[in-house]
Write a protein that binds this DNA or RNA. Structure first.
Lengths: 147, 147
DNA sequence: TTACAACTTAAAGTCGACTTTAAGGCAAGA
DNA sequence: TCTTGCCTTAAAGTCGACTTTAAGTTGTAA
């Protein structure tokens, strides 16, 4: 079977080689065999990385992905693993959706109703409506995360 | 007018004193007056912080908040400032909502349709359906961010 | 006087997922 | 032999919003 170098694998799955080394280091990819010190992969790693990418696409963090691979008894079928993790993740996503909806409502109210001349006035209004002691959940809206 | 210490201000707005010092350092709060070295605030700072909190609640990052305060000609009314920034933020939130919807669809498909025995099989399936080269936008689903 | 609480600063640490850097190894081609 | 190009590692850097730590200051109470 064809042995792939790390950069071939990276190219095929759309990652940087450094990301693949990182995955190995934190234990979501098993250590690759070496040919005179260099990693050589067979095509099975592409399946593994496809699963990792799919999991990342659906909001899983790397330690949840580790759980997907290693957090079950060995015989547990893939479908069951996905079931469990997906259920949890869907709940998280629903909560997140709710938070975003709240933010949108607030923003729209702000846009439609704010007639303030100064931000100080604005602040007074927010304080009066008791809106300042609502706990702030920063909601990590990352920009330009793409490579 | 009553002069507040930093921890009184912090308590009233639900922040840590260190956060307020941080805001001053990065320039979204003006340097406070000092009484023998210690910061003393008058109640106007509460309005200022209310605006900051409201902006954080609606997804603004600290440099956007700086823009809200200092990124306009001085005479620009608060309502106009909110208009501009909110329009932008709403667009961002809509995009985010779309991303989450995509993730949910993928997750549900995974839950309903995956009959795989092994994750390797899963990966093969994902590869076949061309799902691995979709660019991954990590979507920072932070957990336990609240103190 | 001594203890204490609350403040000050600069610098470093945190979280997650990587990337970048620095220093070096190894094989193929000119 | 030397260069080129790809590989290796460990360690440090990045981003955002803070917090924590270490070391020192100030005012008040016992």
């Amino acid at each position: 079977m064809a042995q792939l170098t790390i950069s071939e694998v990276a190219r095929q799955v759309g990652l940087q080689p450094s990301a693949i080394r990182y995955y190995e280091r934190i234990g979501i990819l098993l250590p690759a065999q070496r040919m005179s010190g260099q990693r050589r992969y067979d095509t099975a790693v592409l399946h593994r990385l496809a699963v990792i990418q799919r999991a990342r696409q659906t909001g899983f963090m790397l330690d949840e992905i580790r759980e997907l691979f290693f957090g079950f008894r060995d015989a547990a079928p893939a479908s069951q693993r996905w079931q469990k993790l997906s259920r949890r993740k869907l709940a998280e996503l629903e909560e997140l959706t709710g938070q975003i909806k709240t933010m949108r409502h607030l923003l729209e109210k702000m846009m439609d109703c704010c007639r303030c001349e100064t931000l100080d006035q604005c602040g007074r209004g927010i304080l009066r409506s008791g809106g300042a002691n609502v706990t702030v959940k920063p909601l990590p809206v990352k920009r330009r995360t793409g490579r």
